[in-house]
Amino acid sequence: MVISDNHGQQSMLDKIRKLESDSDYYVHCGDSEALEERLKGWICVRGNNDWIARLQDEIVFEVEGVNFLVTHGHRYGYFNREEIMVDDLLRHGCDVLLSGHTHVPQCDEINGLYLINPGSTTLPRQGSNKSYCIIFVDQGEIKVEFKEII
């Protein structure tokens, strides 16, 4: 289960975790603006609005042979963004990039690599709705399902 950019709406962490209680991993792509104790049990990176010293800028983890890179995404800029994201995946030897920052849901496959952004749980942009996503991994294959928050 992947979320991003709840920007201090800490109740959203509990709400989605309850909705997706059977998830194996809970990933936050940054800008939680949460208190450190609220992030226990989450794979969580630092966004440009997070101030918890222990948060890392990047985390790599593996699920069933699929390597994930998690980062907030604010360092990718706006020009050649996807090209830079793919280069970052290749540099880390990963298959899937999980990032936030834009507040816009994204799931693009480029040459077998995935760029996934769950959108924002509280402040969606560009006409998108409040959202998060679920990623299913089965024998090295991934399927992404976006869910809207009502």
Rank of each mutant, 00 (worst) to 15 (best):
G119A: 08
H103Q: 00
H92N: 14
N49P: 01
P118R: 08
E82T: 04
H74M: 03
I149R: 05
P105M: 09
H7Y: 10
Q139I: 07
N49C: 15
D87R: 15
G140V: 05
R81C: 08
S11T: 11
Q9H: 15
H92D: 03
G93A: 01
F136C: 12
S23V: 02
P124E: 06
V45L: 01
Q9F: 13
L19M: 14
S23P: 04
G73F: 08
G93M: 05
G47W: 01
E64M: 11
G47V: 07
G77D: 08
G112T: 03
K18D: 12
H28A: 13
V104N: 01
V144Q: 09
P105C: 09
L98K: 06
P118D: 07
D57I: 00
D22H: 12
D87H: 12
N48I: 05
C94M: 02
I84K: 15
H72I: 02
F68E: 11
L98G: 02
N49D: 03
W42T: 07
Y26D: 02
Y78E: 14
H28N: 14
V86F: 04
Y76A: 01
G93Q: 02
Q9I: 03
E64N: 13
I149E: 02
L39C: 04
I84L: 11
D108K: 15
E145R: 14
V144E: 09
H74A: 00
E83H: 10
S99F: 15
D108M: 13
N6H: 13
S21I: 09
L39I: 03
T122Y: 07
P124T: 05
G30K: 06
L123G: 04
D88V: 06
I84M: 09
G8P: 06
Y26Q: 07
L115V: 04
I142G: 08
R54C: 10
V60D: 06
G41N: 04
E36R: 15
V137W: 06
H28F: 11
H28Q: 05
I43W: 01
V27R: 07
S128T: 14
T71V: 14
V2N: 02
H7R: 08
M12N: 10
D50F: 04
V27T: 01
G73I: 08
I3P: 01
S4K: 05
N129G: 11
Q126L: 14
G100T: 00
D57R: 13
F79W: 12
D22E: 12
N67E: 10
R46V: 10
Q10A: 12
G140R: 09
I52L: 15
D14P: 02
F61P: 09
P124C: 05
E37K: 15
D108C: 12
H92C: 05
A53Q: 11
R54F: 13
D14Q: 14
C94Y: 03
L115W: 04
C44A: 15
H101T: 00
K40A: 12
Y78W: 13
G100K: 00
G112K: 08
G140L: 09
D14F: 12
H101G: 00
I59S: 02
Y76L: 14
G30I: 01
Y78H: 13
